[in-house]
Design a binder for these strands. Structure first.
Lengths: 211, 211
DNA sequence: ATTATCTATAGATCTATAGATAATGC
DNA sequence: ATTATCTATAGATCTATAGATAATGC
């Protein structure tokens, strides 16, 4: 045989099960049955359920981390274009991995072991980019390109708008949410909302009020 | 004895465990130990784990439903004030129940039994208010009070902004998210973003472009 | 004499492995 | 003769209950 076809099939089935039901809700027998292999095979290729899960989680975390980092790397263009481009890439990534945020969020929150790890990772990968972004935002505000804004608030606005729809889609798809054309419109909507948010206010008073 | 003190203690402990770890991740022994009662007591007051869970879920769903309905009931004021007031109430509700959205989302998505139920509930409670809202938005746009906007997009914007921060708070609290003063600023930010979104555009071209 | 609590354990469910058998590579 | 697959079952974990004992209400 010598091919790791079975191993791959099991891993993919595990991925689907874990993403849908989480670690606690997933049964190794279900993974095996979804993969169409004997249950003993699962333990032949992967020692334990935990190990199989770690593999899936690590891969997904890496995927997620890369998507964030790559988005932050955009630079050397006007701030509004930069934000717009970053949002677009972020949205596309989510569309390709719609169940990822819910999965990571849940496993991390419901399992103490991962919480500490995740919090550290967030602090580490977020702190410097956050400072840089704030600097760029301040500079752009100084030039009158955009209004003054706190980087965390901006990022939270963007993340909220981009991520949330994908999270709730399975439940609210009956009222017209979901599907290619919806997400196309949604992407435009999200970027529009943020662009408007960044626009310098005509009445200078307002700047002071909110910042 | 005749007081149902123990019963209440168990129910509250169950609520905490379920909200944190979900149905599959929760152990009845853990609930009992959190409640500080003998494990057998749990089955004395509540026949099964499933039954205990149903009680918690039903209560939380009702709470959630009421919060949505009550927000939709606001009327008889200018559209922008109405939206602003609704957002404010919605935000306050979430601040009082920060882990509710994640819990409901997860249980509903990871357990098929609940999915059908939830989808029906959404369709039923959302359809009419959605039509009414669209009507009001269209009327207000006609008068030039706001720009044209699709009701679903607006609601999705609002829900995203209001809910998301509470969902991720446990993970990102290390970078300054969370706490009374943060949420106060966050609430203002969310309302501001939506108010700007509703503002009629100065260049009439833009209206056509996005709608 | 009814209601609440405990101990001890049965029963159900899920993960993991031993050991036998079949398939492939050399 | 090494690698892959199967059957059958052990072992671990979790839920649920039986039955004995203690506490309260009348």
């Amino acid at each position: 045989m010598r091919d790791n076809k079975t191993e791959k099939i099991i891993l993919e089935a595990a991925e689907q099960e874990f993403l849908l039901k989480g670690f606690a809700g997933t049964r190794t027998t279900e993974i095996a049955s979804r993969a169409g292999v004997n249950h003993a095979m699962l333990h032949y290729y992967f020692d334990t359920k935990e190990q199989l899960f770690e593999k899936v989680l690590a891969e997904k975390m890496e995927l997620f981390r890369n998507s964030v980092v790559s988005v932050f790397e955009i630079n050397e263009m006007p701030i509004k274009e930069m934000v717009s481009e970053a949002m677009s890439r972020h949205f596309d990534f989510l569309q390709a991995n719609p169940s990822l945020p819910r999965f990571l969020l849940n496993e991390v929150i419901s399992r103490q072991e991962y919480m500490a790890r995740a919090r550290q990772a967030v602090t580490k990968i977020a702190e410097e980019p956050l400072r840089n972004l704030q600097q760029r935002l301040d500079d752009a505000a100084e030039c009158g390109e955009i209004c003054r804004i706190d980087a965390i608030m901006l990022l939270m606005d963007i993340a909220s708008l981009n991520i949330f729809a994908f999270m709730v889609e399975p439940i609210v798809s009956s009222v017209g949410i979901g599907g290619e054309s919806f997400y196309q419109a949604r992407k435009a909507e999200n970027i529009r909302v943020i662009m408007q948010r960044l626009t310098p206010n005509s009445e200078p008073l307002c700047n002071e009020m909110y910042y």
